[in-house]
Design a protein around this nucleic acid. Structure first.
Length: 620
DNA sequence: TCGGCAGGGGCA
DNA sequence: TATATGCCCCTGCCGA
């Protein structure tokens, strides 16, 4: 056993790194002697790609705020047994970012997610509920190192820098270091042990903060349940149609090359270099108008679509002679994006059974919204079917989807209690039609209806006439008139938004969601409170729905959570019925305003909901 | 070689 | 006074 003394916040802590089976016996004796009611726990692995075939669980560490034990799980035998004992027997485990470690422990056979999760306290969840802002937003962030530096010991992150240096001295990089560094390395062992000490010490500080802010225990429990539900979805994953995806990669590569060559004819070597594209366009006699914040010429999709004479559906508008370079750049960039960010990412992230396991971060955004990465399945193109076609159901199964109808607008109505808006929703009226009637009278046109829709969304984000005009391509005075009409139609919304801001100002720029979540606003951006409350509350309604689904045993059909939608798979014969059951469970009322849901069965691939042509459907 | 920034583009 | 929100991830470019 190697034993290190590690200074931490003025104390001397102890890190024991186990090396022999005798050490494992000694560690067991410590457990029987102390009978700890609660232990902090952490793992070190070969990388973050938990489900990739080569993934390895290297060490399991546990301990208190004063002593940590590092167990080389990778050596098996008595070490693996010891790790299993701690994970399965300890009454409470404190973990930072538990979703990751729980899935690692599950995947490597230490203990199933369901057996451990109910005993876990996740300090990352606690930190998010204390203050969800990132460091650059004036918060501390929710990563272990900055939190520890703030609450425990400013010198805490030093070991991390030391480990990076050790990687380099051994010819390893950040990508290869975690798999390649020998267990015996002192810096590695100290680093592993320190994370446990920090997690254990962090916990009481965070709980005091929760208490101080009056964050309800029910919210803490809610987030732990949600984390567990989403970890199970992540473990289940989704099946990839590998031959299709490989073909797609090839087709997109060919597209990229073809359009890149077209662009090269006009002197553009690097498509992603906006400076080159701008210079070439200017050289062709085009006039550029917009600048980026730093003063460079703006040549984004909006600018290029105009120059290429295409509308936002990429159809010819017939208003000018299309600029061929703009057209080539648009198409080359889109093909490259689809290829690299989506198709290749799916192939790279698959496990030995061709399943992908996108990481679901249940508290990804500061509003609490979940985010999905590796691969980013929340961001797949929704206008085309090509990318989503790569995701297929298991034989005999089909995809289904259940979504909440206009949830953010319904939440806006419920929070503001705008009487006419609430009543219209209760009466089951189409909200945009109803709004258009209030704004323009019974004989409103299709165009006026779309204005009503834009005004609704624009208001929940607190957008101004100028921005909305730019987004929609409509004149600014039209948008100004539209927003005025909307404000007159729903005076309660504006009143509520104003009250919210002044209330925030007198409360240290802080607002609370109905669930008790604390959201901190930038003093100069109090208007954001409206969007935050709508987004965060909408998220919590779906979160509650997921917990309700769990209680009914329906989450076993689910694969993914995409904000106001859940995606699932079920046996073909039962899919419609299960989707209906899910839709009924997701349906709820918020302050007397109903949140409606829609269910749809997509078929054998996710693309079934996105206009998949019959020739491209998978064979039966 | 790596990290950070800028610019861009995908979604709800 | 008025302000469009929240994410993930890519490439190019520059400096350490």
């Amino acid at each position: 056993m190697k034993t290190y003394r590690h200074p931490l916040a003025g104390d001397v802590t102890t890190i024991h790194a186990l090396e022999t089976p005798d050490d494992a016996r000694e560690a067991r004796e410590w457990l029987s002697e102390h009978q700890p009611r609660s232990l902090a726990l952490d793992t070190e692995t070969s990388g973050l790609d938990t489900f990739n075939p080569g993934h390895q669980l290297r060490t399991v560490q546990y301990g208190t705020g004063d002593v940590a034990f590092v167990v080389p799980f990778e050596r098996g035998g008595a070490f693996a047994d010891l790790a299993r004992t701690v994970v399965t027997r300890c009454p409470e485990l404190v973990i930072h970012n538990a979703a990751y470690d729980l899935l690692v422990l599950d995947r490597h056979g230490v203990a199933p997610l369901e057996a451990v999760a109910p005993r876990v306290r996740d300090t990352k969840i606690l930190a998010h509920l204390c203050d969800s802002r990132q460091d650059f937003e004036g918060g501390i962030g929710i990563s272990l190192k900055p939190l520890s530096a703030w609450y425990v010991d400013p010198a805490a992150p030093d070991t991390q820098a030391g480990l990076t240096a050790v990687f380099r001295s051994r010819g390893l990089t950040k990508a290869t270091g975690w798999a390649g560094i020998p267990y015996q390395d002192e810096t590695y062992q100290r680093y592993a042990g320190l994370d446990v000490l920090l997690t254990a010490r962090l916990r009481p500080y965070l709980e005091r903060e929760l208490e101080r802010h009056g964050i309800p225990d029910t919210l803490v429990e809610f987030e732990h349940q949600l984390m567990t539900i989403c970890a199970a979805m992540e473990r289940r994953g989704m099946l990839l149609d590998v031959p299709y995806t490989e073909g797609l990669v090839d087709r997109l590569a060919a597209d990229t090359q073809r359009h890149t060559e077209r662009a090269a004819r006009y002197g553009v070597e690097n498509l992603n270099s906006t400076a080159q594209v701008a210079q070439a366009l200017l050289g062709m006699g085009e006039e550029l108008v917009d600048r980026t914040p730093s003063g460079a010429w703006k040549v984004d999709k909006g600018v290029l679509l105009d120059l290429a004479d295409l509308d936002d559906q990429w159809q010819p508008r017939g208003t000018r002679r299309p600029n061929p370079l703009a057209d080539a750049v648009l198409r080359a960039k889109r093909a490259a994006k689809w290829r690299n960010s989506y198709a290749v990412a799916m192939l790279d992230n698959r496990d030995a059974h061709d399943r992908i396991h996108p990481k679901i971060n249940t508290l990804g955004a500061k509003t609490g919204r979940a985010s999905v990465s590796d691969p980013p399945l929340q961001q797949l193109p929704s206008k085309g079917w090509e990318i989503r076609r790569a995701i297929v159901a298991e034989p005999g199964n089909v995809y289904f989807s259940v979504d909440q109808s206009s949830v953010e607008l319904v939440v806006l109505a419920a929070l503001s209690q705008e009487p006419r808006m609430c009543q219209a929703i209760r009466d089951g009226r189409n909200l945009h039609d109803f709004t258009a009637t209030l704004m323009f009278g019974d004989a409103f046109t299709k165009h006026q209806r779309s204005l009503a829709k834009i005004a609704g969304l624009g208001t929940s984000y607190q957008g101004g006439a100028a921005t909305l005009a730019k987004m929609t391509g409509m004149p600014e005075n039209v948008m100004r008139d539209t927003l005025q009409r909307y404000a007159r139609a729903y005076p309660g919304v504006k009143r509520w938004a104003r009250g919210l801001q002044s209330h925030a100002l007198s409360n240290g720029c802080e607002i609370r969601t109905p669930s008790g979540r604390r959201l901190v606003l930038d003093r100069d951006r109090l208007y954001k409170g409206v969007a935050y409350l709508c987004q965060s509350t909408a998220r919590d309604t779906m979160g509650q729905a997921l917990i309700d689904l769990q209680e009914k045993g329906l989450t076993r059909y689910l694969n993914l959570w995409v904000h106001d939608e859940v995606l699932g798979t079920a046996p073909k014969a039962e899919a419609a019925e299960i989707a209906q059951e899910v839709a009924e469970t997701v349906r709820m009322e918020l302050f007397g305003v109903p949140i409606g849901t829609d269910a749809e069965v997509y078929g054998k691939t996710w693309a079934g909901g996105y206009g998949l042509p019959e020739d491209w459907a998978p064979a039966a």
